[in-house]
Write a protein that binds this DNA or RNA. Sequence first.
DNA 1: AGAAACATTGCTCTTTGTGCAATTTCGTGA
DNA 2: TCACGAAATTGCACAAAGAGCAATGTTTCT
Lengths: 203, 203
Amino acid sequence: MTESSLRDKKKLATRKALAEAAFELAVERGVDSFVVEDIVTKAGYSRRTFANYFSCKEEAIANSLGLDEYLQPVDQFEFSPKDHTPLSTIEVFIRRSFTINKLKRLNQLISLSREHPTLRLYVTGALKEMQDFAGRGISEEYGSDYPPEYYHILIGAVFGAILPVLDESFDVNLPDDEEQIENSNEFNQYMDTVFAHLRKGFS
Amino acid sequence: MTESSLRDKKKLATRKALAEAAFELAVERGVDSFVVEDIVTKAGYSRRTFANYFSCKEEAIANSLGLDEYLQPVDQFEFSPKDHTPLSTIEVFIRRSFTINKLKRLNQLISLSREHPTLRLYVTGALKEMQDFAGRGISEEYGSDYPPEYYHILIGAVFGAILPVLDESFDVNLPDDEEQIENSNEFNQYMDTVFAHLRKGFS
DNA sequence: AGAAACATTGCTCTTTGTGCAATTTCGTGA
DNA sequence: TCACGAAATTGCACAAAGAGCAATGTTTCT
């Protein structure tokens, strides 16, 4: 299912290596104090190869979020929450996908992009890919149980609510202590209120 | 209020001229069959001036949507719908902002960006600016009547619901007949269901 | 093992991005 | 009204990016 030949694994590996090198350089030196050349020397590839994977350094930095890891397990949606409604399913998907490490990385990316419009664009673009993925998953899962727009609206609402808060004053607020319980951070508390609002409706 | 000295007007004019030239070239020749040089000769400016306004041709094309026109009248929010709730206010704002002409242009842009990831990024970026603008407006309007996240969630939901449909199979479906009633197009019908869902809540 | 498919790379050339300085245009106060 | 300061436009020059092409090395499939 996962379609991972050795060739594909290597492709993902180089992609990840390049993205990670780009991200580290961005943190160490600042976004516009290094060039593509620096990335490839750090990662051990050629400038031409970089161009095969990313169109610019901002794209590479943003992709260090590791979308690939979300996009692999299409069966995230297999397991159903108790009530098996689209909203609950999405809720579970969100809480599983935004792990502490992802949130940390996301926070760094948003902080980096605060003064870099282009990077910001690519970061939100990466999140939008995740949104599309979730959209496809959920509408396959529930098929024609709901009108087709329903899924768009719901997914759009959930992701639309996530982004603005994330890039404005939000902090995951977890120390380097990895043993912390996944569900007891600011993000999850915020998501509580998001889903509560979505269930209740707006006025 | 509108802060438009003659100098500012000229700035907006050149900006608009450049963006419009870029858009027309994109439609005529296709997005990657022309260069910045072509844009500036068409618009009558220098390459260096182009760089003062846009960072790349995609940004120029996307900005032909004419965000500026949204961003001017901050008092869009002044007038209140009957029930004066955030949702209704946003609804009115949306319906007023997405005029037929805007929707047509948006459709063309989305169609152009279908095969051009970079352009797509800038188009969604432009819409996100509009979203931020709406967010600022609405939270100024209602202040602390609602918890601060409420506005983010609501605006995020509305705009989040708009984007996916717009770039997937959506067509404004209005001929060149400008006299058509603004409220009787597919977009407005879709927005009807969006707001209905948001009022009702999700399950 | 051999052939086909594909990733990586070097090379080259066009296009882009940007700092700096010069010039022109606009705004403001005497 | 005039002249001075502010800001927009432009040219120039150079570093960097983007992309086609062909060569080379690696994986896959039979």
